[in-house]
Design a protein around this nucleic acid. Structure first.
Lengths: 143, 143
DNA sequence: GCGTAATTTGGAACGATTCAAGATTGGTAA
DNA sequence: TTACCAATCTTGAATCGTTCCAAATTACGC
């Protein structure tokens, strides 16, 4: 599979050992954008068989700190992971069903980065989350 | 105290029953901006005596849905509450110590609200979180 | 091929939050 | 004012996602 060799290559590039769980988790994140940990665990298990829960948590943390995946955590939701890293995009979250969609930044490369008063903080990242209701839930609520 | 009567007035204005736990919690949120639930519980107990943990959780939820307080929840942190509602401001969060500071929006009234592609979502709120390191942690790390 | 060190495993622990049932209180109408 | 009803508080326990621990396994570099 291409996904597997891509994952393998990405792991090597990040100086991470190439193990079966890591390849499987990385491939699962690529295949299921915005999946939570439980969904990733299930996806990995259905694909390659026995992988422990802790292995997935640990791999996800390793991949996150290596910058291969990005951890997103909308308020009131569990942690989710996505494979789109490096580009500047944000998210829309459905208040009703929790669905997440990617939103490219409207302003350009570094949106809203300019805080009017940064209180002396050295800001290195700015996160934008749009809250609303997704099309499915909108039609479901007003038939 | 003025804080207490203010809280009482705010509760009545929101058609919420005025109870001792509610007044105490609302006053505590006003006195401690960005406090987490545990800090609020401790503040309330030191002030008015016995209030159950669940009462505080329930009151905070009631106040949040009534719009009297705003719940903020930076990724990797516990829920925090603030009393500044209605104005359009965002937050800077310290990656090191978790400190939170308010940031008025640089763009104006509705910043970054324009998503380039909203995927059909009806967006009603946009949340901006800046991540960085606060002055205290910066000096602590490079003396 | 071998050794070392990282990695995975399985179990258990943890903290924040929520659930359930009963007692109590606040608001309101008589 | 008094009594009523429903909302709210208390007590106690349970749930969920996540992390920690020690032991066994595995992969990588030489």
């Amino acid at each position: 599979m291409t996904a597997t060799s891509d994952a393998e290559h990405a792991l090597r590039g990040a100086s991470l050992r190439v193990t079966r769980p890591r390849v499987a988790v990385l491939a699962a994140v690529h295949e299921h954008p915005h999946a939570d940990t439980d969904a990733i665990i299930r996806a990995v298990r259905s694909g390659t068989g026995g992988v422990s829960t802790q292995a997935v948590y640990d791999v996800l943390r390793a991949l996150t700190s290596a910058g291969l995946v990005r951890r997103i955590e909308p308020a009131g939701s569990v942690a989710r992971y996505e494979a789109r890293v490096g580009d500047n995009h944000h998210h829309v979250v459905c208040r009703s069903c929790g669905a997440i969609a990617d939103v490219d930044c409207a302003v350009g490369a570094a949106p809203c980065m300019a805080a009017s008063d940064d209180h002396g903080f050295s800001i290195d990242e700015t996160e934008v989350t749009h809250w609303g209701v997704c099309p499915d839930c909108t039609t479901a609520h007003s038939p």
